[in-house]
Design a protein around this nucleic acid. Sequence first.
RNA 1: GGAAGGGUGUCCGAGUGGUUGAAGGAAACGGUCUUGAAAACCGUCGUGCCGGCAACGGUACCGUGGGUUCGAAUCCCACCCCUUCCGCCA
Length: 432
Amino acid sequence: MLDIQFIRDNAELVQEKSRQKGYDVKVTDLLKLDEERRNLQGKIESLRAERNQIADALKGGNPSEDQIKRGREVKEQVAQAEALLDPVEASFLALLKKVPNMPLDDVPVGASEDENVVAKTVGEPTQFDFEPKHDYQLGEAKDLIDKERAAKVAGSRFAYIKGDLVRLQFAIIQFVLQELGDEAVIKRLVEENNLQLSTKPFTPVLPPALLRTEPYVASARLDAEEVTYKIEQDDLWLNASAEHTLCTMYWNEILPEEALPIRYIGYSTSFRREAGSYGKDVEGIFRMHQFDKLEMEVFSTSESGLDEHKLMVAIQEYLMQQLQLPYQLIKKCTADIGKPNATGVDINCWFPGQQQYRETHTADYMTDFQARDLKIRARRTSGELDPVHTNDATAFALGRILKAIIENYQNQDGSIRVPTVLKSFMGGAETI
RNA sequence: GGAAGGGUGUCCGAGUGGUUGAAGGAAACGGUCUUGAAAACCGUCGUGCCGGCAACGGUACCGUGGGUUCGAAUCCCACCCCUUCCGCCA
Protein backbone atom coordinates (compact mmCIF):
# COMPACT_ATOMS: atom_id res chain seq x y z
CA MET A 1 0.00 0.00 0.00
CA LEU A 2 0.87 3.62 -0.33
CA ASP A 3 2.06 5.64 2.66
CA ILE A 4 -0.99 7.46 4.07
CA GLN A 5 1.19 10.42 4.99
CA PHE A 6 2.19 10.72 1.34
CA ILE A 7 -1.45 10.67 0.31
CA ARG A 8 -2.30 13.39 2.85
CA ASP A 9 0.51 15.57 1.55
CA ASN A 10 -0.16 14.92 -2.17
CA ALA A 11 -3.88 14.36 -2.47
CA GLU A 12 -4.28 15.83 -5.94
CA LEU A 13 -1.24 14.07 -7.34
CA VAL A 14 -2.42 10.74 -5.95
CA GLN A 15 -5.87 11.28 -7.46
CA GLU A 16 -4.41 12.11 -10.86
CA LYS A 17 -1.83 9.33 -10.98
CA SER A 18 -4.38 6.78 -9.82
CA ARG A 19 -6.67 7.90 -12.59
CA GLN A 20 -3.81 7.51 -15.07
CA LYS A 21 -3.47 3.90 -13.97
CA GLY A 22 -7.18 3.31 -14.34
CA TYR A 23 -7.92 3.16 -10.63
CA ASP A 24 -10.80 5.44 -9.83
CA VAL A 25 -10.13 5.86 -6.13
CA LYS A 26 -11.83 8.71 -4.33
CA VAL A 27 -8.95 10.35 -2.54
CA THR A 28 -11.15 12.95 -0.86
CA ASP A 29 -13.31 10.15 0.58
CA LEU A 30 -10.21 8.41 1.78
CA LEU A 31 -8.91 11.54 3.46
CA LYS A 32 -12.29 12.19 5.05
CA LEU A 33 -12.27 8.70 6.52
CA ASP A 34 -8.69 9.28 7.60
CA GLU A 35 -9.69 12.38 9.48
CA GLU A 36 -12.71 10.72 11.03
CA ARG A 37 -10.55 7.83 12.05
CA ARG A 38 -7.98 10.07 13.64
CA ASN A 39 -10.64 11.99 15.57
CA LEU A 40 -12.18 8.81 16.95
CA GLN A 41 -8.76 7.43 17.70
CA GLY A 42 -7.89 10.55 19.69
CA LYS A 43 -11.06 10.18 21.74
CA ILE A 44 -10.47 6.52 22.36
CA GLU A 45 -6.92 7.14 23.38
CA SER A 46 -7.83 9.75 25.97
CA LEU A 47 -10.50 7.44 27.36
CA ARG A 48 -7.97 4.66 27.50
CA ALA A 49 -5.55 6.99 29.22
CA GLU A 50 -8.21 7.61 31.85
CA ARG A 51 -8.85 3.91 32.21
CA ASN A 52 -5.15 3.27 32.61
CA GLN A 53 -4.91 5.99 35.23
CA ILE A 54 -7.72 4.42 37.22
CA ALA A 55 -6.15 0.99 37.01
CA ASP A 56 -2.81 2.50 37.94
CA ALA A 57 -4.25 4.15 41.03
CA LEU A 58 -5.61 0.80 42.17
CA LYS A 59 -2.33 -1.06 41.90
CA GLY A 60 -1.80 -3.24 44.89
CA GLY A 61 -5.44 -4.25 45.17
CA ASN A 62 -8.35 -3.63 47.52
CA PRO A 63 -10.23 -1.13 45.34
CA SER A 64 -13.40 0.35 46.81
CA GLU A 65 -16.85 -0.17 45.34
CA ASP A 66 -16.82 3.37 43.95
CA GLN A 67 -13.50 2.91 42.25
CA ILE A 68 -14.62 -0.28 40.60
CA LYS A 69 -17.79 1.42 39.47
CA ARG A 70 -15.87 4.27 37.89
CA GLY A 71 -13.55 1.83 36.18
CA ARG A 72 -16.53 0.00 34.74
CA GLU A 73 -18.02 3.22 33.43
CA VAL A 74 -14.87 4.21 31.60
CA LYS A 75 -14.51 0.71 30.24
CA GLU A 76 -18.02 0.97 28.83
CA GLN A 77 -17.21 4.32 27.22
CA VAL A 78 -14.07 2.90 25.64
CA ALA A 79 -16.05 -0.01 24.22
CA GLN A 80 -18.64 2.35 22.75
CA ALA A 81 -16.00 4.54 21.14
CA GLU A 82 -14.23 1.50 19.74
CA ALA A 83 -17.46 0.26 18.24
CA LEU A 84 -17.72 3.55 16.38
CA LEU A 85 -14.14 3.38 15.16
CA ASP A 86 -14.16 -0.21 13.89
CA PRO A 87 -16.30 0.32 10.77
CA VAL A 88 -14.53 3.60 9.97
CA GLU A 89 -11.16 1.91 10.27
CA ALA A 90 -12.33 -0.96 8.07
CA SER A 91 -13.60 1.28 5.28
CA PHE A 92 -10.49 3.42 5.56
CA LEU A 93 -8.21 0.42 5.11
CA ALA A 94 -10.28 -0.99 2.28
CA LEU A 95 -10.06 2.31 0.44
CA LEU A 96 -6.36 2.76 1.19
CA LYS A 97 -5.62 -0.65 -0.28
CA LYS A 98 -7.34 0.36 -3.49
CA VAL A 99 -4.86 3.14 -4.11
CA PRO A 100 -2.26 1.94 -6.62
CA ASN A 101 1.43 2.68 -6.48
CA MET A 102 2.39 5.96 -8.13
CA PRO A 103 3.85 5.63 -11.62
CA LEU A 104 7.24 7.26 -12.04
CA ASP A 105 7.21 10.45 -14.10
CA ASP A 106 8.67 8.85 -17.22
CA VAL A 107 5.99 6.17 -17.46
CA PRO A 108 3.92 6.90 -20.59
CA VAL A 109 0.35 7.86 -19.73
CA GLY A 110 -2.09 5.56 -21.48
CA ALA A 111 -5.50 4.01 -21.07
CA SER A 112 -4.69 0.51 -22.28
CA GLU A 113 -1.81 -1.68 -23.39
CA ASP A 114 -2.29 -0.28 -26.88
CA GLU A 115 -0.55 2.83 -25.62
CA ASN A 116 2.58 1.03 -24.51
CA VAL A 117 5.64 2.48 -26.16
CA VAL A 118 8.22 0.57 -28.16
CA ALA A 119 11.45 1.88 -26.64
CA LYS A 120 13.69 0.00 -29.00
CA THR A 121 13.86 -2.84 -31.45
CA VAL A 122 16.86 -5.14 -31.37
CA GLY A 123 17.54 -7.45 -34.29
CA GLU A 124 15.33 -7.94 -37.31
CA PRO A 125 12.37 -10.29 -37.62
CA THR A 126 13.95 -13.60 -38.61
CA GLN A 127 13.89 -14.13 -42.40
CA PHE A 128 13.14 -17.49 -43.98
CA ASP A 129 13.20 -18.63 -47.59
CA PHE A 130 10.31 -20.93 -46.75
CA GLU A 131 7.07 -20.56 -44.85
CA PRO A 132 8.05 -20.69 -41.14
CA LYS A 133 6.03 -23.05 -39.01
CA HIS A 134 4.54 -22.72 -35.54
CA ASP A 135 5.99 -24.38 -32.46
CA TYR A 136 3.19 -26.93 -32.32
CA GLN A 137 3.68 -27.97 -35.94
CA LEU A 138 7.40 -28.49 -35.45
CA GLY A 139 7.08 -29.86 -31.94
CA GLU A 140 4.41 -32.40 -32.78
CA ALA A 141 6.15 -33.51 -35.95
CA LYS A 142 9.34 -34.28 -34.02
CA ASP A 143 7.46 -35.63 -30.99
CA LEU A 144 8.82 -32.90 -28.75
CA ILE A 145 5.41 -31.65 -27.63
CA ASP A 146 2.38 -33.79 -26.91
CA LYS A 147 -0.61 -31.74 -25.88
CA GLU A 148 -3.20 -34.26 -26.94
CA ARG A 149 -2.28 -36.84 -24.38
CA ALA A 150 -1.72 -34.10 -21.80
CA ALA A 151 -5.30 -32.98 -22.43
CA LYS A 152 -6.45 -36.52 -21.79
CA VAL A 153 -4.64 -36.55 -18.47
CA ALA A 154 -4.78 -32.97 -17.21
CA GLY A 155 -7.02 -31.04 -19.58
CA SER A 156 -6.35 -28.31 -22.09
CA ARG A 157 -3.32 -26.01 -21.82
CA PHE A 158 -1.06 -28.74 -20.51
CA ALA A 159 1.69 -30.49 -22.43
CA TYR A 160 4.18 -33.27 -22.27
CA ILE A 161 7.47 -31.68 -23.25
CA LYS A 162 9.79 -34.41 -24.48
CA GLY A 163 13.19 -35.42 -25.67
CA ASP A 164 15.61 -32.81 -26.90
CA LEU A 165 13.21 -30.02 -26.03
CA VAL A 166 13.62 -31.01 -22.38
CA ARG A 167 17.40 -30.99 -22.84
CA LEU A 168 17.09 -27.55 -24.38
CA GLN A 169 15.14 -26.30 -21.36
CA PHE A 170 17.77 -27.58 -18.98
CA ALA A 171 20.48 -26.04 -21.16
CA ILE A 172 18.77 -22.66 -20.84
CA ILE A 173 18.57 -23.06 -17.07
CA GLN A 174 22.24 -23.94 -16.87
CA PHE A 175 23.13 -21.03 -19.08
CA VAL A 176 21.16 -18.50 -17.02
CA LEU A 177 22.56 -19.75 -13.72
CA GLN A 178 26.04 -19.50 -15.20
CA GLU A 179 25.61 -15.94 -16.43
CA LEU A 180 23.74 -14.51 -13.43
CA GLY A 181 26.08 -16.26 -11.06
CA ASP A 182 29.09 -14.65 -12.74
CA GLU A 183 30.15 -11.44 -11.02
CA ALA A 184 32.07 -10.37 -14.14
CA VAL A 185 28.84 -10.39 -16.16
CA ILE A 186 26.98 -8.36 -13.55
CA LYS A 187 29.89 -5.97 -13.23
CA ARG A 188 30.00 -5.38 -16.97
CA LEU A 189 26.27 -4.70 -17.16
CA VAL A 190 26.45 -2.36 -14.16
CA GLU A 191 29.27 -0.41 -15.76
CA GLU A 192 27.87 -0.34 -19.28
CA ASN A 193 24.66 1.15 -17.96
CA ASN A 194 26.34 3.61 -15.56
CA LEU A 195 24.56 2.16 -12.56
CA GLN A 196 25.55 2.93 -9.00
CA LEU A 197 25.23 -0.63 -7.84
CA SER A 198 26.90 -3.56 -6.20
CA THR A 199 28.25 -6.19 -8.58
CA LYS A 200 27.05 -9.02 -6.40
CA PRO A 201 25.91 -11.99 -8.49
CA PHE A 202 22.51 -13.64 -8.20
CA THR A 203 22.01 -16.58 -5.86
CA PRO A 204 19.99 -19.43 -7.37
CA VAL A 205 16.91 -20.45 -5.37
CA LEU A 206 14.45 -23.31 -5.63
CA PRO A 207 11.51 -21.84 -3.75
CA PRO A 208 8.35 -23.57 -2.62
CA ALA A 209 5.73 -23.57 -5.36
CA LEU A 210 2.83 -23.19 -2.95
CA LEU A 211 2.12 -20.46 -0.48
CA ARG A 212 -0.43 -19.58 2.14
CA THR A 213 -3.09 -16.89 1.79
CA GLU A 214 -1.70 -14.46 4.32
CA PRO A 215 1.73 -13.85 2.77
CA TYR A 216 0.24 -14.03 -0.71
CA VAL A 217 -2.23 -11.25 0.10
CA ALA A 218 0.51 -9.20 1.73
CA SER A 219 2.57 -9.43 -1.45
CA ALA A 220 -0.13 -7.44 -3.29
CA ARG A 221 0.10 -10.05 -6.04
CA LEU A 222 -2.98 -12.09 -5.28
CA ASP A 223 -5.35 -9.69 -6.94
CA ALA A 224 -7.28 -11.99 -9.23
CA GLU A 225 -8.44 -15.43 -8.30
CA GLU A 226 -9.06 -16.06 -12.00
CA VAL A 227 -5.33 -16.39 -12.53
CA THR A 228 -4.39 -18.46 -9.50
CA TYR A 229 -5.13 -22.02 -8.46
CA LYS A 230 -6.32 -22.52 -4.91
CA ILE A 231 -6.02 -25.68 -2.88
CA GLU A 232 -9.04 -25.20 -0.65
CA GLN A 233 -8.34 -28.14 1.59
CA ASP A 234 -5.10 -26.67 2.85
CA ASP A 235 -5.25 -22.89 2.51
CA LEU A 236 -2.54 -23.01 -0.12
CA TRP A 237 -2.19 -21.42 -3.52
CA LEU A 238 -0.08 -22.63 -6.42
CA ASN A 239 2.30 -19.82 -7.23
CA ALA A 240 1.80 -18.14 -10.57
CA SER A 241 5.47 -17.19 -10.58
CA ALA A 242 8.51 -17.71 -8.37
CA GLU A 243 8.32 -14.01 -7.57
CA HIS A 244 5.37 -14.79 -5.29
CA THR A 245 7.34 -17.12 -3.10
CA LEU A 246 10.53 -15.07 -3.41
CA CYS A 247 9.17 -11.65 -2.48
CA THR A 248 7.41 -13.13 0.55
CA MET A 249 10.59 -14.77 1.77
CA TYR A 250 11.48 -11.93 4.13
CA TRP A 251 7.89 -11.21 5.15
CA ASN A 252 7.84 -9.48 8.56
CA GLU A 253 11.60 -9.18 8.71
CA ILE A 254 14.11 -6.44 9.27
CA LEU A 255 17.18 -6.76 7.08
CA PRO A 256 20.49 -5.10 7.91
CA GLU A 257 21.43 -2.56 5.25
CA GLU A 258 24.75 -4.37 4.73
CA ALA A 259 22.84 -7.43 3.47
CA LEU A 260 21.40 -5.43 0.56
CA PRO A 261 21.04 -5.85 -2.30
CA ILE A 262 19.73 -9.39 -2.02
CA ARG A 263 19.63 -10.81 -5.54
CA TYR A 264 17.93 -14.10 -6.27
CA ILE A 265 17.39 -16.05 -9.43
CA GLY A 266 14.51 -18.38 -8.64
CA TYR A 267 13.41 -21.38 -10.63
CA SER A 268 9.89 -22.62 -10.20
CA THR A 269 7.03 -24.21 -11.99
CA SER A 270 4.28 -21.61 -12.35
CA PHE A 271 0.57 -22.27 -12.50
CA ARG A 272 -2.10 -20.12 -14.06
CA ARG A 273 -5.79 -20.73 -14.44
CA GLU A 274 -6.06 -18.45 -17.50
CA ALA A 275 -9.77 -18.25 -16.75
CA GLY A 276 -10.15 -14.99 -18.62
CA SER A 277 -8.43 -16.11 -21.78
CA TYR A 278 -10.55 -18.92 -23.19
CA GLY A 279 -9.90 -19.27 -26.87
CA LYS A 280 -6.75 -17.13 -26.76
CA ASP A 281 -3.44 -18.65 -27.83
CA VAL A 282 -4.79 -22.17 -27.65
CA GLU A 283 -2.21 -23.54 -30.09
CA GLY A 284 1.26 -24.51 -29.00
CA ILE A 285 2.93 -23.81 -25.70
CA PHE A 286 2.59 -20.02 -25.55
CA ARG A 287 -0.14 -19.84 -22.92
CA MET A 288 -0.22 -22.81 -20.59
CA HIS A 289 -1.69 -23.63 -17.21
CA GLN A 290 1.75 -24.79 -16.16
CA PHE A 291 5.20 -23.65 -17.19
CA ASP A 292 8.63 -23.31 -15.66
CA LYS A 293 10.19 -19.95 -15.14
CA LEU A 294 13.48 -18.40 -14.12
CA GLU A 295 12.65 -15.27 -12.20
CA MET A 296 14.87 -12.57 -10.72
CA GLU A 297 13.93 -10.98 -7.42
CA VAL A 298 15.87 -8.18 -5.77
CA PHE A 299 15.53 -6.50 -2.38
CA SER A 300 17.40 -3.22 -2.19
CA THR A 301 17.57 0.14 -0.47
CA SER A 302 15.33 2.92 -1.68
CA GLU A 303 18.22 4.76 -3.32
CA SER A 304 19.24 1.86 -5.53
CA GLY A 305 15.79 0.49 -6.37
CA LEU A 306 15.53 2.17 -9.73
CA ASP A 307 19.05 1.23 -10.77
CA GLU A 308 18.35 -2.36 -9.75
CA HIS A 309 15.36 -2.22 -12.08
CA LYS A 310 17.58 -0.95 -14.89
CA LEU A 311 20.08 -3.69 -14.18
CA MET A 312 17.40 -6.33 -14.44
CA VAL A 313 16.21 -4.97 -17.77
CA ALA A 314 19.83 -4.92 -18.94
CA ILE A 315 20.15 -8.56 -17.90
CA GLN A 316 16.99 -9.46 -19.80
CA GLU A 317 18.35 -7.80 -22.91
CA TYR A 318 21.73 -9.41 -22.46
CA LEU A 319 20.17 -12.86 -22.20
CA MET A 320 18.03 -12.28 -25.28
CA GLN A 321 21.03 -11.05 -27.21
CA GLN A 322 23.04 -14.07 -26.14
CA LEU A 323 20.30 -16.26 -27.59
CA GLN A 324 20.23 -13.98 -30.64
CA LEU A 325 16.51 -13.61 -30.54
CA PRO A 326 14.93 -10.50 -32.11
CA TYR A 327 12.91 -8.48 -29.65
CA GLN A 328 11.36 -5.18 -28.78
CA LEU A 329 11.72 -3.40 -25.48
CA ILE A 330 8.34 -2.08 -24.43
CA LYS A 331 7.83 0.69 -21.94
CA LYS A 332 4.50 -0.13 -20.42
CA CYS A 333 2.05 2.71 -20.02
CA THR A 334 0.30 3.69 -16.79
CA ALA A 335 -2.71 1.46 -17.49
CA ASP A 336 -0.58 -1.62 -18.08
CA ILE A 337 2.14 -1.59 -15.41
CA GLY A 338 -0.13 -3.00 -12.71
CA LYS A 339 -1.27 -1.76 -9.34
CA PRO A 340 1.86 -2.27 -7.21
CA ASN A 341 4.25 -1.08 -9.92
CA ALA A 342 5.95 2.28 -10.22
CA THR A 343 7.31 1.36 -13.60
CA GLY A 344 7.34 -1.67 -15.81
CA VAL A 345 9.05 -2.91 -18.93
CA ASP A 346 8.16 -5.83 -21.17
CA ILE A 347 10.26 -7.62 -23.70
CA ASN A 348 8.34 -8.87 -26.68
CA CYS A 349 10.12 -11.50 -28.70
CA TRP A 350 9.58 -12.09 -32.39
CA PHE A 351 7.56 -15.21 -33.14
CA PRO A 352 7.83 -16.17 -36.82
CA GLY A 353 4.83 -18.52 -36.67
CA GLN A 354 2.50 -15.66 -35.78
CA GLN A 355 4.61 -13.03 -37.52
CA GLN A 356 4.44 -10.79 -34.49
CA TYR A 357 6.19 -9.72 -31.33
CA ARG A 358 4.68 -11.32 -28.23
CA GLU A 359 5.47 -10.84 -24.56
CA THR A 360 8.14 -13.10 -23.13
CA HIS A 361 9.50 -10.97 -20.27
CA THR A 362 8.37 -8.41 -17.80
CA ALA A 363 10.28 -6.33 -15.27
CA ASP A 364 8.44 -4.77 -12.36
CA TYR A 365 9.67 -2.10 -9.98
CA MET A 366 7.45 -1.77 -6.93
CA THR A 367 9.40 0.90 -4.98
CA ASP A 368 8.36 0.45 -1.33
CA PHE A 369 4.72 -0.33 -2.15
CA GLN A 370 5.00 -4.08 -1.82
CA ALA A 371 7.47 -4.05 1.07
CA ARG A 372 5.22 -1.81 3.17
CA ASP A 373 2.51 -4.49 3.18
CA LEU A 374 5.02 -7.30 3.53
CA LYS A 375 6.68 -5.41 6.38
CA ILE A 376 10.15 -5.93 4.98
CA ARG A 377 12.36 -3.15 6.26
CA ALA A 378 16.00 -2.27 6.15
CA ARG A 379 17.87 -1.30 9.28
CA ARG A 380 19.98 1.50 7.89
CA THR A 381 23.48 2.04 9.22
CA SER A 382 22.08 5.27 10.67
CA GLY A 383 19.71 3.13 12.77
CA GLU A 384 16.61 4.24 10.84
CA LEU A 385 14.09 1.73 9.55
CA ASP A 386 13.04 2.00 5.95
CA PRO A 387 10.83 -0.24 3.81
CA VAL A 388 13.06 -1.98 1.26
CA HIS A 389 12.46 -1.57 -2.45
CA THR A 390 11.50 -4.65 -4.43
CA ASN A 391 12.05 -5.57 -8.06
CA ASP A 392 11.11 -8.66 -9.95
CA ALA A 393 11.83 -9.57 -13.53
CA THR A 394 11.63 -12.58 -15.80
CA ALA A 395 14.93 -14.14 -16.74
CA PHE A 396 13.20 -16.65 -18.98
CA ALA A 397 9.70 -18.09 -19.05
CA LEU A 398 10.73 -21.46 -20.37
CA GLY A 399 7.59 -22.33 -22.33
CA ARG A 400 7.60 -19.13 -24.27
CA ILE A 401 11.31 -19.05 -24.80
CA LEU A 402 11.33 -22.64 -26.05
CA LYS A 403 8.65 -21.63 -28.52
CA ALA A 404 10.74 -18.61 -29.55
CA ILE A 405 13.79 -20.79 -30.14
CA ILE A 406 11.83 -23.44 -31.99
CA GLU A 407 10.33 -20.90 -34.34
CA ASN A 408 13.30 -18.58 -34.87
CA TYR A 409 15.85 -21.38 -35.23
CA GLN A 410 13.82 -23.68 -37.48
CA ASN A 411 15.13 -25.21 -40.67
CA GLN A 412 13.03 -26.12 -43.68
CA ASP A 413 13.34 -29.82 -42.88
CA GLY A 414 11.73 -29.27 -39.48
CA SER A 415 14.96 -29.52 -37.49
CA ILE A 416 15.85 -26.79 -35.02
CA ARG A 417 19.31 -25.30 -34.66
CA VAL A 418 20.70 -25.00 -31.14
CA PRO A 419 21.61 -21.39 -30.19
CA THR A 420 25.39 -21.06 -29.99
CA VAL A 421 25.58 -20.28 -26.27
CA LEU A 422 23.52 -23.36 -25.44
CA LYS A 423 25.51 -25.88 -27.45
CA SER A 424 27.97 -26.64 -24.66
CA PHE A 425 25.03 -27.51 -22.41
CA MET A 426 23.59 -29.78 -25.12
CA GLY A 427 26.60 -32.00 -25.54
CA GLY A 428 27.70 -29.96 -28.53
CA ALA A 429 24.58 -30.78 -30.56
CA GLU A 430 24.07 -28.49 -33.57
CA THR A 431 20.41 -29.25 -34.11
CA ILE A 432 17.55 -31.04 -32.49
C1' G B 1 -3.14 -40.04 10.69
C1' G B 2 -1.59 -40.60 16.42
C1' A B 3 1.09 -38.10 20.59
C1' A B 4 3.76 -34.23 22.98
C1' G B 5 6.04 -29.44 23.36
C1' G B 6 6.24 -24.50 21.75
C1' G B 7 5.20 -19.20 19.38
C1' U B 8 7.92 -12.90 23.79
C1' G B 9 12.22 -7.45 20.91
C1' U B 10 17.61 -7.77 15.57
C1' C B 11 18.80 -12.87 17.71
C1' C B 12 18.75 -16.30 22.09
C1' G B 13 15.87 -16.36 26.31
C1' A B 14 13.16 -15.14 31.51
C1' G B 15 8.50 -13.79 32.88
C1' U B 16 4.27 -14.83 40.19
C1' G B 17 -3.01 -10.64 37.38
C1' G B 18 -0.89 -4.49 39.07
C1' U B 19 6.12 -2.10 40.78
C1' U B 20 6.69 -5.16 32.93
C1' G B 21 7.61 -2.06 27.17
C1' A B 22 8.96 -6.30 29.23
C1' A B 23 14.78 -9.65 33.44
C1' G B 24 19.35 -11.76 31.64
C1' G B 25 22.60 -12.74 27.58
C1' A B 26 24.32 -11.91 22.46
C1' A B 27 24.70 -8.60 18.43
C1' A B 28 24.97 -3.41 17.21
C1' C B 29 26.39 1.63 18.39
C1' G B 30 29.20 5.31 21.58
C1' G B 31 33.15 5.59 25.14
C1' U B 32 37.39 4.16 28.73
C1' C B 33 41.84 1.34 28.36
C1' U B 34 45.64 0.04 24.28
C1' U B 35 51.03 1.78 19.63
C1' G B 36 46.73 -0.83 17.14
C1' A B 37 43.29 -4.75 17.75
C1' A B 38 41.16 -8.28 21.07
C1' A B 39 39.65 -8.82 26.06
C1' A B 40 37.69 -6.20 30.16
C1' C B 41 34.79 -2.20 31.93
C1' C B 42 31.01 2.00 31.45
C1' G B 43 26.91 3.83 28.65
C1' U B 44 23.03 3.66 24.69
C1' C B 45 19.85 0.37 22.37
C1' G B 46 11.87 -2.36 20.26
C1' U B 47 7.95 -1.13 16.66
C1' G B 48 3.34 1.10 14.73
C1' C B 49 -0.14 5.01 15.21
C1' C B 50 -1.84 10.01 17.10
C1' G B 51 -0.37 14.99 18.79
C1' G B 52 4.02 18.43 18.85
C1' C B 53 8.96 22.56 15.21
C1' A B 54 11.27 19.82 18.96
C1' A B 55 12.49 17.89 23.82
C1' C B 56 8.52 14.97 24.67
C1' G B 57 3.49 13.19 25.73
C1' G B 58 -0.55 9.68 24.72
C1' U B 59 -1.92 4.93 22.89
C1' A B 60 -1.43 0.02 20.97
C1' C B 61 1.52 -4.27 20.32
C1' C B 62 4.41 -10.64 23.76
C1' G B 63 1.28 -15.97 17.03
C1' U B 64 -4.18 -14.25 15.51
C1' G B 65 -9.17 -13.17 17.07
C1' G B 66 -12.59 -13.07 21.03
C1' G B 67 -13.66 -13.20 26.44
C1' U B 68 -13.03 -12.54 32.02
C1' U B 69 -11.19 -8.24 35.16
C1' C B 70 -11.03 -1.71 37.91
C1' G B 71 -6.33 -3.77 35.61
C1' A B 72 -3.95 -9.31 31.08
C1' A B 73 2.43 -11.27 28.03
C1' U B 74 0.30 -13.79 32.51
C1' C B 75 -6.48 -16.50 33.42
C1' C B 76 -10.50 -18.65 29.80
C1' C B 77 -12.24 -19.96 24.62
C1' A B 78 -11.46 -20.57 19.41
C1' C B 79 -8.19 -20.56 15.49
C1' C B 80 -3.32 -20.31 12.93
C1' C B 81 1.69 -21.60 12.69
C1' C B 82 6.27 -24.14 14.17
C1' U B 83 9.17 -28.16 16.36
C1' U B 84 9.88 -33.22 18.06
C1' C B 85 8.50 -38.47 18.36
C1' C B 86 5.57 -42.59 16.19
C1' G B 87 3.11 -44.20 11.64
C1' C B 88 2.88 -43.71 6.24
C1' C B 89 5.48 -42.16 1.91
C1' A B 90 9.19 -39.87 -1.75
